[in-house]
């Protein structure tokens, strides 16, 4: 499953905000961290604000903060705001047996991706981030010698 850039930006932003919900984070900070233009990010944040996932705070020290429920909001909730999430029943418009067979196999992959995205909340994502940070910080284990076959 390949996500469009706006969707990825929405997920990056929400995870940054949800990691520290008390803090108002300027859009420029997110834009710099992920190497995108503030103008581009502003459109994404406007949509997240419109649907009530973040709140815009104006003035000095302003920015955005997370106002959703990180224990309930899933990746799929966010993704479906930014792109079409097709049903997983397969593409019945395929005219040929080969086309239908291929669509059937591809729909298996979509179904698994959809189930994953629908079951992972922002809170779970933040835990995965923490685990990966902890793993990166831990001293590297000695490399195993390659086994001979």
């Amino acid at each position: 499953m390949k996500l469009q850039q706006n969707t990825r930006l929405a997920l990056f932003s929400l995870l940054e905000f949800a990691a520290d919900p008390q803090r108002q984070i300027p859009a420029a900070e997110i834009a710099q961290k992920y190497g995108v233009s503030s103008h581009h990010l502003a459109k994404v944040l406007a949509e997240l604000s419109r649907v009530g996932m973040v709140q815009s705070v104006r003035g000095v020290g302003g920015g955005y903060r997370f106002i959703g429920n990180a224990r309930r909001l899933t990746l799929m909730d966010v993704i479906s705001r930014f792109e079409d999430v097709l049903p997983v029943e397969g593409n019945h418009s395929e005219a040929t047996p080969v086309g239908r067979a291929l669509a059937s196999v591809l729909s298996e992959i979509d179904a698994i991706a959809k189930a994953s995205m629908s079951s992972i909340t922002l809170e779970t994502m933040l835990r995965i981030v923490e685990r990966q940070q902890a793993a990166s910080a831990a001293p590297a284990a000695p490399k195993a010698k390659p086994s001979k076959h």
Binding site: T74, A111, I112, A115, S119, I120, T121, E123, T124, R131
Partner: peptide, 15 residues
């Protein structure tokens, strides 16, 4: 079952 998002979410939240 992959449709069982409630318990899938629970197991996911546990790592």
């Amino acid at each position: 079952a992959r449709e069982n998002t409630l318990i899938l979410s629970f197991f996911r939240s546990q790592g």
